[in-house]
């Protein structure tokens, strides 16, 4: 099955070891850029107390939630260490400087 992609902006829009947000009707998606320019898209809501992960400190392929320091894998959305929880991840693709996210974020909204 071919994946449909939606262009969301440029890699250079996001600071290295940082994140930017996508606004969607069901909540924000955080788009992360690591120190070596890998990109990841995660639900911008910590399952613990709803903290905005996009405001966290990005280290390696992890982010630390700014509210209570839960650490998440950017690759899997899984919380690290003994805490339990996971955030949704979304397929994201980079073509040179251009970034695309799975278009399923749009139908997903329509279906809800």
């Amino acid at each position: 099955m071919t994946e449909e992609w939606t262009e969301i902006g440029r890699l250079s829009d996001i600071p290295r070891r940082g994140a930017r947000c996508l606004g969607t009707p069901f909540g924000r998606i955080a788009v992360f850029r690591t120190v070596d320019d890998a990109v990841f898209a995660l639900e911008d809501r910590c399952p613990h107390k709803g903290g905005p992960l996009s405001d966290g400190i990005v280290h390696g392929t992890s982010v630390t939630c700014p509210l209570h320091n839960w650490v998440f894998s950017l690759e899997t959305g899984q919380v690290q260490g003994p805490d339990k929880g996971q955030v949704q991840t979304f397929a994201i693709r980079r073509d040179q400087d251009r970034l695309f996210i799975t278009a399923s974020i749009i139908p997903a909204i329509a279906a809800e």
Binding site: L22, G23, G27, I106
Partner: peptide
């Protein structure tokens, strides 16, 4: 400025939450 604005908005603005 990147800290204070979304990279992109889809559909309704998130303020509708």
């Amino acid at each position: 400025a990147h800290e204070f604005a979304a990279m992109a908005e889809f559909g309704l603005p998130q303020a509708a939450e």
